[in-house]
Simulated scan of single mutants.
Amino acid sequence: MYYFLRRLGYFKKLIVCFQILLFVSCSGSDDNEKDYVADFEFEVNANIVSFTNASSGDYLYIEWDYGNGETSGAQSNRDYQGTAYYPLKGDYTVTLTVFGPSNKSSDVKTVSKTIQIMADDPDYKPVEEGLVWSDEFDQSAINTENWTFEVGHGDWGWGNNELQYYTDGDNARVENGKLIITAQKVDDNTTTGSYTSARMVTMGKQAFTYGKVEIRAKLPAGRGVWPAIWMLGTNINSVGWPACGEIDIMEYVGYTPNVVHSTVHTTDGSGSNGSGSSMDLETAEEDFHIYGINWTEDEIVFYVDSLENVVHTYAPSIKTANNWPFDKPHFIIINLAVGGTWGGAQGIDNSIFPQTLEVDYVRVYE
């Protein structure tokens, strides 16, 4: 009996030792899971803050919460560098979450830091009520759920004898919360294909009938550039142009600086016979301005910066299919052309390139 009890005590000791070893082993595994450090660096430049991942050790991926309502989603790039926009003065808490190698919910580390924005962005315009769609260009790349690149020279230079070749995204990027379309010179000639640029459309992805459409943009400069922000009827492939209707929210020709143009094209009046007006805008090339339309069943009002600053009003008293194709959906186009029947009417100054059309946002309201 004594021998049995002594053996039983021996086995109990073995069990206790095994439990201790198991505990140490599990604890060691947890320590390995947490063998990494979460950290980041940042630099404040007015209302734009740049972030750099400074985490070290063995981890899988990171996620950012920028403290301004925006998050990054999972980022596996250890050398991640990004930016976030803070339009209003104040303190913001930014949190970086680092996920460890086990990919367990418990295997994470976070680090939070406070950034201080010293002043409101004077160019910031908050989103109004009634917003139905927008692209704020605050992602890392152009959103292909909203936009398609139209590529090539087009028929007859996109119908206007334009000289640029539109690329499949090579001439457009998102940077610091802005869409930037760049027109570049390829050679020293002034012929078809001597320039590259970009033309982006929402056709087949986003289209609208009535409402307020606003685009905040800064325009390029110099003789030969021809940026445009405009709309076409989605039925263009079945009825053709101009029966589909065209709404030129803003056009600009560089040889007449600081004058913006707004025009409507229909079967009753198109091309040089379209219904439109112009407005002097001294800082069109230096500052961002809002180019907009207020489109109802009765009229289309074109304006710059506010509804009180009207460029043109199109409101035929008796509406027909020939003068009012604007009771049907239209899609949005943003492009930067070079040369053409209007943009190149006074030639092209090759010394100005590259030139950029910058867009802060596109917003559509009910």
Rank of each mutant, 00 (worst) to 15 (best):
F331D: 13
Y166V: 12
I115E: 07
T266M: 13
P122Y: 05
D138Q: 13
I215M: 12
G269L: 10
I333S: 05
Y303V: 10
N350R: 01
V259R: 06
A337V: 04
A217V: 06
V127W: 00
T192M: 04
G269M: 14
K89S: 12
S306D: 14
S50W: 02
L21N: 07
G340P: 10
K218Y: 07
E282I: 02
W147I: 01
V49G: 01
A337Q: 06
T209E: 11
Q75I: 14
I115K: 06
N273E: 12
Y92Q: 07
V359L: 05
V364S: 02
L5I: 05
E129D: 14
A337E: 04
G271N: 11
D35H: 03
S275A: 15
D120W: 03
D121P: 15
L14I: 02
P257F: 06
L21K: 12
T266E: 14
N146R: 07
A243F: 06
M200P: 00
K109W: 00
D248N: 13
G152K: 08
N309F: 08
L22G: 08
P316V: 03
A172Q: 03
T283A: 15
V201Q: 11
Y85A: 10
V310K: 01
S194K: 02
S238E: 15
F302G: 00
V359T: 11
S197Q: 13
R173L: 14
D39S: 10
T283Q: 12
Y61V: 05
W295D: 09
E33I: 04
I20M: 14
E308K: 15
E299N: 05
N146V: 07
V259A: 02
D155S: 15
I115Q: 07
K328M: 07
W147N: 02
A54P: 00
R223W: 05
M1G: 12
G28M: 01
W241E: 05
T267W: 01
S270I: 11
I300M: 00
T209A: 08
T234C: 15
D31T: 02
W226V: 00
T267R: 05
T296P: 06
P242H: 01
N323W: 08
I290F: 08
K34Y: 12
N323F: 04
Y3H: 11
T71F: 13
D155Y: 12
T234M: 15
H312Y: 12
D30R: 13
A221C: 09
Y85I: 08
F137Y: 11
V364W: 01
L21H: 08
V111N: 04
Y361A: 03
G224Q: 02
R78M: 12
I247G: 00
Y195M: 09
K218Q: 11
L131V: 15
E129Q: 06
H289R: 06
G152S: 10
E129W: 03
L357C: 01
D287Y: 02
T97V: 08
Y314D: 13
N235F: 12
S56K: 15
F40G: 04
E297M: 05
A198P: 03
F42Q: 00
Y59M: 04
Y210C: 06
D268L: 10
Y291A: 04
A183R: 02
A198D: 03
L163V: 04
T191M: 11
M250G: 03
A172K: 02
Q355I: 03
K13F: 14
T356K: 04
G240N: 09
Y255W: 13
H289L: 07
T148Y: 01
S306Q: 10
G211L: 03
D39P: 04
P101G: 10
G245M: 00
V186F: 01
W295H: 15
